[in-house]
Design a protein around this nucleic acid. Structure first.
Lengths: 205, 205
DNA sequence: AAAAGTTAATTAAACGTTTGTTTAATTCAA
DNA sequence: TTGAATTAAACAAACGTTTAATTAACTTTT
């Protein structure tokens, strides 16, 4: 039997992602996780602390992945970009529910404490990718591009695709039940598009 | 003195965008708009109907802009793409609060009725841009690209930049009070990046 | 090893707010 | 004088949180 504390977090990820922070009641979470309402405040102190705990837990896992690619000295800059794209597509597609919450809480201005926590979590990753591009420019293998916005393009394209299943299916002419994000073909299609785009934009002829 | 009904909608756009649908109470809206709480239900029937009304009102304005560009037969395909990028950046940057709500409601699975309305509003615009790209491919002036995902890249890049002022400022090394979205230089920077990106990706050499 | 004591886990119930909505009375304009 | 606009007040329901009581899981003592 799974730990009740992590059981609560797992359900919280699911429900917060589906209905937002305000849209999800702790009674929702409690009944779905098969625990008493009071357990949530018992373990986490408050609904907000539960949210923060959830972010921090995922943050720890997320941090190292990028650096492993970037610190691999056997790779050229464009190969690093390719691997970053592959890893981002895979990770965001798989953990899309969680990333939707992050996305959502970033947009909503209130609860500044959460905002700060999320921004402090995302900014370093953004800078890591930027550094790869700037290194390529310095070496002369990359064109002189706006590295900040190139990162926005990579992440933004993935986020745009993840925005709405309904919207995605409407564009793909698929039926409503189809889940494009779980389809390996579609994942490859997004990866290939981004790599193709970056190759033609970054590499000098 | 402005009409109370539109006064309510104006405030609703502002507050929904800042705090989300669930995060905004009709008492918030009422006091900010200087009307009685009951006026909202009197005019709109319910909180949800108010939201729908707000979307429909903005939708009417949004629809025609794209088609004017696309139907201009004096423009080549790449010129149309350039103008679409410019108009999108300008419009999304100016109406960013409203577009945040749309963004937000698209992500949240509940309230399927709103989702459908929004998807039905956005999909046609997406197809209009796709058609421009596909026309360029057919003419032989564009490379054979994944037009669906190219659209996702254009819109996604803009949305990514609009995601969070805090995040944006952190990347730009600006102080917290700075509003990059109102800075014409920054708008041009985003526009230029996207046009540059699309030229090098779409146009054959 | 059994009993007693102690802490942690868990529960149902209630707390005080806040929510969206409605009512019934009043003001206002035509 | 009629009908719409506007109000304050009340409504029931849902919210996050707390309480106080009970059960379970260990420790310590005998």
């Amino acid at each position: 039997m799974i730990d009740k504390k992590t059981q609560i977090i797992n359900v919280a990820v699911e429900l917060f992602a589906e209905k937002g922070f305000e849209g999800t009641s702790i009674r929702d979470i409690a009944t779905t996780a098969n625990v008493n309402v009071a357990m949530i405040n018992y373990y986490f102190g408050s609904k907000e602390k539960l949210f923060e705990c959830m972010v921090e837990q995922k943050a720890a896992y997320t941090k190292d992945i990028l650096e492993e690619i970037v610190n691999n000295e056997k790779l050229t800059e464009i190969e690093k970009i390719d691997q970053i794209i592959d890893s981002y597509v895979t990770r965001l597609f798989s953990n899309r529910k969680f990333h939707r919450i992050i996305h959502h809480e970033l947009m909503i201005n209130e609860r500044g404490v959460l905002q700060d926590a999320i921004v402090n979590l995302l900014t370093p990753n953004s800078f890591v990718i930027r550094n790869v591009i700037d290194a390529g420019i310095k070496k002369g293998t990359f064109k002189k591009v706006d590295s900040l916005l190139v990162v926005a393009t990579i992440v933004g394209t993935i986020n745009q695709v993840l925005l709405s299943k309904k919207f995605c299916n409407k564009c793909l002419n698929k039926e409503a039940e189809y889940v494009p994000y779980d389809d390996a073909k579609f994942r490859k299609r997004v990866s290939d598009h981004l790599k193709d785009l970056m190759h033609s934009y970054l590499l000098k002829n």
